[in-house]
Amino acid sequence: MSGLATYNFAYLDEQTKRMIRRAILKAIAIPGYQVPFASREMPMPYGWGTGGVQVTAAILGPSDVLKVIDQGADDTTNAVSIRAFFQKVANVEVTTRTKEATIIQTRHRIPEEKLTEGQVLVYQVPIPEPLRFLEPRETETRKMHALSEYGLMHVKLYEDIARNGHIATTYAYPVKVEGRYVMDPSPTPKFDNPKMHMSEALQLFGAGREKRIYALPPFTDVVSLDFDDHPFTVQSFEKPCALCGAEGVYLDEVVLDDRGGRMFVCSDTDYCEDRRAQGFLGDQGVPLKEAAE
């Protein structure tokens, strides 16, 4: 117990990494299928990204460039903490720039920048089972997946429409993968669902507490569940980002004062900075240099 010096590269021992890699390979071979794996106790709490961290640790090599985001931002505390962890135990290069990263670990968002071949997006997943809130029993949900019994999923969507006139699921919106498995995309807003479809990047999902890994290999067919006459739609925002003027991106609402004043800014901080560096400005934005001062 003489400190971190005795820990292996990227914290996990090589046996454990091999076990996780086997699970990942199986997950890639059966897109959308939840592969059980012997999740380890990690030095951060369950529910704080232990699944994602284990996946990242298992695939990380010394030449990788790592980016970690939470809510789309690189500077949220948990993203900072996980990034610092890998700097400490693997001494890898880190970045906030989506383009430069080879591995991006994320919680709740997919970057706005289109991911490309060779990149890996690692999702932190709290509850991997899309059927869990319809059927709490693992023994039963496993059977439902095995037999493709997904009628219940549409019952839920039907109820949404009957009650609200539209589907009321806004995040963790279930998808069907390659026409076979129904999958939980992790609690990303449904806005990000289309980005999973036919993505050039490999997408890996790790759920530490629930001990499951699943995957979307590059160029996988990912369809958000819906009805033909009530098709899946994503959120749209009325105004562009107040800082960089971007449209068609996911925005966070920032409360400015207690009189109801608020503004909407990019949730993807790297994307926003990049645009401002290129000279794009929103109606409340300032050029990047000034802001830094």
């Binding site: 809510q71 709740h108 806004t170 966070d252 949730s267």
Partner: peptide, 10 residues
């Protein structure tokens, strides 16, 4: 932990 992205959607 921050959940503001999902909360925004809600």
């Amino acid at each position: 932990l921050p959940h503001y992205v999902d909360f925004q959607a809600e």
